[in-house]
Simulated assay, not measured.
Amino acid sequence: MEDHKDLLDLDRFLPYRLAVIAARVSKSMSVLYAEKFGISIAEWRVIAHLARSERVSVRDIHARVNLDKVKVSRAVSRLEEAGLVLKASNASDNRLLDITLSDRGWSVYRQIVPLARGFEADLLSVLDDAECAALERLFEKLHARLDENRDAPGHLPSEV
């Protein structure tokens, strides 16, 4: 008989639990904008990032929205076809394209933001104020821990 004490209990393994909850939150929220606006999770992430950053390259978006470059490029192409983003040559680097939201893209963004805020409020409504504050602190601590060793992505410092 095999010894199972060395097996990983995924239901209690933090990286797995975070990935599952993130995917579930993303998928649940995507229903809000997919049906009404016909955009995907990747496309929404690009739109949201452009609203914050105004003019950026695919490389910049890739680094910020946690999607691989191919998904970002496809999302940008679909958004351009839908008239939600505009592409222009980068003044300082001809290899890069600057991407911005079009007027139509801004309109979609402004319509989705209240839906996103409502979704977030509903999700967080199961937590009291102290739990919300604790959750925010926990996220900050986990981000800081992951940032401690940026030179070796995916690796925590050796004392862990």
Rank of each mutant, 00 (worst) to 15 (best):
M1Q: 09
E2S: 12
D6W: 02
D6Y: 08
L7I: 00
L7V: 09
L8Q: 09
D9F: 00
D11C: 06
R12Q: 10
F13P: 01
F13K: 03
L14P: 10
Y16S: 03
Y16Q: 04
L18F: 07
A19V: 05
V20G: 00
I21F: 11
I21P: 02
A22Y: 09
A23E: 04
V25Y: 09
V25R: 08
S26P: 02
S26R: 08
S28P: 03
M29V: 04
M29R: 04
V31A: 13
Y33W: 14
Y33T: 01
A34N: 12
G38W: 06
G38I: 06
A42R: 04
V46N: 01
L50C: 00
A51W: 02
R55A: 10
R55N: 05
R59E: 15
R59Q: 12
H62K: 15
A63S: 10
A63W: 01
A63K: 05
R64H: 06
N66R: 10
N66S: 13
V70G: 05
V72D: 04
R74S: 10
A75Y: 05
V76W: 04
S77A: 15
S77F: 08
R78F: 06
E80G: 00
E80P: 02
E81D: 14
A82F: 02
A82C: 01
A82V: 06
G83Q: 03
V85S: 01
L86Y: 03
A88G: 09
S92N: 07
D93Y: 05
N94H: 13
R95K: 14
L97M: 11
D98N: 15
L101G: 01
D103C: 02
D103H: 08
G105E: 03
G105M: 03
V108I: 15
Y109V: 07
Q111N: 14
V113D: 06
P114L: 10
E120T: 15
E120S: 13
A121Y: 05
D122P: 08
D122G: 11
D122Y: 12
D128A: 08
D129R: 12
D129E: 15
A130F: 04
E131I: 05
C132H: 07
A134V: 03
R137L: 15
L138C: 12
K141C: 06
L142I: 14
H143W: 11
L146Q: 10
D147S: 13
E148D: 14
R150D: 14
D151K: 12
D151M: 10
A152G: 03
A152I: 12
A152T: 15
P153I: 06
G154W: 03
G154Q: 01
G154H: 05
H155Y: 14
P157A: 14
S158F: 12
